[in-house]
Simulated scan of single mutants.
Amino acid sequence: MSLHPVWPLWAVLLVALPLILFPAVMLVTRRDRRIAWLRRLGIALAIGTIAIGPSTMHTTASTVQSNAEIFFVVDRTGSMAAEDYDGTAVRLDGVRHDLEAIVDAFPGARYSIIAWDSQATRQLPLTTDARAVTSWADTVRQELTSFSTGSQVDRPLVALAEALTGAAERTPSNVRLVYFMSDGENTDGEQSSAEAELESFAPLAPLVDGGAVLGYGTTEGGRMKVWDGFTPAEEAPYITDPDNGGAEAVSRIDEVTLRTIAEQLGVDYVHRIAPDAVDGFTSGVDVQEIASDGRREHVIYQPIVWPFASAALLLLVWEAFTIARTFPVRRAHLAPEVR
């Protein structure tokens, strides 16, 4: 317990000491009214105690914000359902793991998600709500197979450029990290071409302070199941390749493309084939120092008021009742009886 006066200590003493000393003196000198002056001394002591502010210490934790802004660029085209991550898991399982692990590595940061399939969309604007990121990761699925128009890794370029430019204009001193998560595959489709020259991410490099390009999949490749929005994965058929006589389609990672994007952005390329630690591409980033769990402890002092206020109130009620009893009682005069 510690003392935190409601006023400066000299002001408290200036007011409280006379209030306490007067009934104390009267208690000694007026022995015929000892109970009354003892009661008044109790009131003065209770009020004086409240004024000097006895308090207990409490430690609270509040979320603090670092100066890191993290942009997740996530491929959710059909090839990200290929079953060649950590054995036979789908590649999106690796994305889920890494999203959550990166968020844990940067507590208190601001996070944004840009996803692309047949088009690129901002799934989550910059927010400090880490739970929003993990909730999105828990529910993300590949695009509907019937809507697939091929896979082009430069499809999110415009959306990412707009997000980074806007962030740089709002908070130029912040650190911006980009985590590009894809298998790098470019496939023919109605609006894409495997032979088309990809647009470069190099113009974005001055806006990027760190991050990584994370590649999912294997050179052997994996099969992908159809996603129609409601059929359980265990019951869904595999996607077939009409250009290969209707055989089951196989998706393979394109590390050459992914390394090129990493070089253009000025970040590292990391091949992710299992749910390993993410320290290699999250540590060493120059962000403001924060607590390890993204929270800062604050010490607050809670005044202890109610016991002394209750005692003062009871004594005041007793005092008021005693004073009321000393008032003369006026008796009503009866009118003379009319005969």
Rank of each mutant, 00 (worst) to 15 (best):
L204G: 00
R295D: 13
L14S: 09
L164I: 05
G266W: 13
V6Q: 13
F106K: 07
Y216V: 04
R40K: 04
Y301C: 08
D86I: 13
A132G: 08
L45D: 08
H271Y: 12
W37L: 01
R223T: 09
W227C: 05
R30A: 01
P203N: 06
E297H: 13
H4F: 12
S173E: 11
S182D: 01
G42H: 04
E220K: 10
P8A: 11
V250G: 11
A120F: 00
G184K: 02
E195W: 10
G189P: 11
R296S: 14
V287K: 05
T127Y: 02
R325L: 14
V338E: 14
I300L: 08
S112A: 15
G221V: 09
V208P: 03
G87K: 07
V6M: 12
T257V: 05
W306I: 12
D117P: 02
A168D: 13
I47L: 15
H4V: 10
S135A: 14
T145W: 03
Y216K: 00
Y269P: 07
A194S: 13
V73Q: 02
A101G: 03
L314I: 14
A120E: 00
H298R: 15
E255P: 01
M80P: 01
V153Y: 01
H97R: 00
L314Q: 04
T63W: 12
D279P: 03
R40I: 06
I102S: 07
V278Y: 03
D93H: 06
I43Q: 00
S2M: 11
H298E: 15
G42W: 11
F180P: 00
S283K: 10
E169A: 15
T145I: 04
G294F: 04
M224C: 04
A130L: 08
W10M: 11
L126V: 11
D188E: 15
V12G: 06
P303A: 07
T282M: 05
D228N: 14
M80Q: 07
E143Y: 00
A311E: 05
R39W: 06
T240C: 05
G215A: 03
E162K: 08
S193G: 12
L21P: 02
V64D: 04
Q191P: 05
D241R: 02
G217H: 02
I102Y: 03
P107N: 03
L157Q: 01
V153G: 04
R39T: 01
V267A: 01
M224S: 06
G222I: 01
V103L: 00
S55T: 12
R330A: 13
L258M: 09
L144D: 04
L334E: 13
A46Q: 07
V250K: 03
D209L: 06
I261K: 01
W227Y: 14
Y111F: 15
P5F: 02
R96D: 01
A167R: 14
I113F: 03
I43F: 03
R131G: 13
I304E: 07
E235L: 15
G217C: 05
A277N: 13
V95R: 06
T218A: 02
V278A: 08
T121K: 10
V287W: 03
W7L: 15
A167S: 15
T219I: 10
T29N: 07
A332Y: 12
E289D: 14
T219Q: 09
V175W: 06
T128H: 09
I52R: 13
